[in-house]
Amino acid sequence: MADNPNSDTSNLEVNHEKFKQTQDQMETIAAEIRQEQALTSDLMPVSQLRVKANYEAGSNFDKGVSILEQDYQGVRTIRGDGNCYYRAFLYSLCEKLFQADKDELTRIQNFAKNSAQKVVKEGGYDETAIEIFHESLVDLITSIVDKSSTQQAIHKELLEENSTSDYCTWYMRVLSGTQLKAEPDRFLPYLEDAYVDVHVYCQKAVEPMGQECTMVTCLALAEAFEVKVAIVYLDGHDIPSNNKLSTHQFGPDNAKTCLTLLYRPGHYDILYPK
C-alpha cells in the first residue's frame, strides 16, 4: 500500500466518508431516541416490558417478565442514551427520599451539600466546572427535604430536557469518579483491560455524558451515597430452578435506602417491589 500513495489517499477518503456516515447514522438514532423515549417514563405494569420489547413468547426474556410480575408491581423505563444507570439512580433516590425518615433525609442532604468540597479535593475536579451541577443536585434534594416540591412536581422537573435530570446525572458521574479516584488500587483490577489508570478511565468512560456505566461505576455510586442498590437481571439466561432472576446488591448492607433497578443487556430501568 505504501508504494501506491494514490490508492492510500482514496482509501483514507473512503474511510473518512464511511466514518462520517456511521457518525451521522448514530446521531439520527440518538435523535430518534430523544424523540420517542422520555428521560424517565410514567410508572407502568411490569407486563409492559414484554409488549414494548416484543419478547418472543416462551423465550427466557418472556419467562423472566412473568417471574418479575410475581414480585414487582411496576417498572419505570429510562431513556436509553447511555446515561440510564445514573439517571435511574437519581430518579429512584428522589422517590425514596419522599418516604425516608428524618435522619436519612438529613444524611443525604448533608452528603449532597458537602460533596462539592469532596469532589474538588479528592476527585481533583475544578470548582468552576462542577458548581452549577452541584447546585442543581442540592436544590433538587432540598426541595424534597423541605417539602417545597411534591412528588409530581419532581417527576415533571426531571422530564425537562437539558435541565435538572441531565445536570444531576452528570454530577452523579462526578461522584462516581471521585469514589473511584479515592481508592484507585481497589478499583483498578476491575476496569476493562484497555485502562491502566483510574484517572484516564474516569476521563474517558465516566465523565463524558452518554458513556454507559460498568459494574465498577455502579458500585462506586452506591458507595458514594451509602445506599443499597439491588440489580435484578433480565438478561435472557436460563431461568434458575428456584424460579428467581439473579440479583446483585451493591452498597452497605445496613443502608436505610434501597434502590431496585432492572438490568437488561446494556440498559437499566427502575423496579417497584410489591
Binding site: 466546572a129 463524558p208 452518554g210
Partner: peptide, 9 residues
C-alpha cells in the same frame, strides 16, 4: 466530540 465532559472548559 464524544469524550467531551463539563469537566473541561
Amino acid at each position: 466530540k464524544k469524550e467531551w465532559s463539563p469537566a473541561w472548559g
